[in-house]
């Protein structure tokens, strides 16, 4: 059973959390600036977006490619497990705080282990939205219009993943 001690030192309780917050904020600001100038979406599997994506499964794709992405989009693979290469890319994304978004196309997709490890889930099917929201929560769930332009889809993905605790729209 996981049981980790709390860090009780002054460095552990004050300095490191502040440093982590600053690092996270720095990455967010950097990614936002980069995304405004040259938005970059990484892809694992069939993202099926009109937006341009960078295939992260090609052999030359390293950790730096993942780090430069504003978001990584994933499609469900044929394989019932997370493919080893994808797992490697997901670990890189985790290390660099890059949001990961699963494209959900059928109700069964949320049973795939990928759904358990991504930061967000989106669907293009309004019929699926309630089921996805039920699984992932309102803040992690989004709709992408399959007929929208690449720019609009990119904007929707970045808007979904940009804020950790957004204020609810009423």
């Amino acid at each position: 059973m996981p049981d980790k001690p709390l860090d009780n030192t002054w460095v552990g309780t004050r300095v490191l959390p502040a440093a982590r917050r600053a690092k996270r904020a720095g990455r967010r600001i950097g990614r936002r600036a980069r995304s405004a100038v040259a938005p970059r979406i990484g892809a694992l599997g069939a993202a099926a977006l009109n937006a341009a994506t960078t295939d992260l499964t090609i052999p030359s794709s390293g950790a730096e490619q993942v780090r430069r992405c504003g978001v990584v989009v994933l499609g469900i693979p044929d394989y019932p497990r997370i493919p080893p290469l994808w797992r490697e890319k997901l670990i890189q994304a985790e290390r660099h705080s890059v949001p990961t978004v699963l494209m959900v196309r059928s109700p069964e997709d949320i049973e795939h282990p990928l759904a358990a490890v991504v930061t967000h889930l989106v669907t293009t099917d309004p019929q699926l939205l309630a089921a996805v929201r039920d699984f992932a929560g309102a803040e992690r769930t989004g709709m992408v219009d399959s007929l929208a332009s690449g720019r609009e889809q990119t904007s929707a993905l970045f808007a979904l993943t940009r804020v950790h605790t957004p204020v609810e729209k009423t």
């Binding site: 996981p2 497990r81 997370i82 080893p84 797992r87 997901l90 670990i91 985790e94 290390r95 282990p113 759904a115 358990a116 490890v117 991504v118 930061t119 929201r133 039920d134 699984f135 992932a136 929560g137 309102a138 992690r140």
Partner: peptide
């Protein structure tokens, strides 16, 4: 706040050739 536990566990299970399942809860 991280999925590294599950991803690293998957890597370990593959290394040990053990079947692996990840189960998470629904937010609702």
């Amino acid at each position: 706040g991280s999925a590294l536990e599950e991803l690293v566990a998957a890597e370990v299970a593959e290394t040990l050739s053990v079947e692996h399942r990840i189960i998470t809860g629904r937010y609702s």
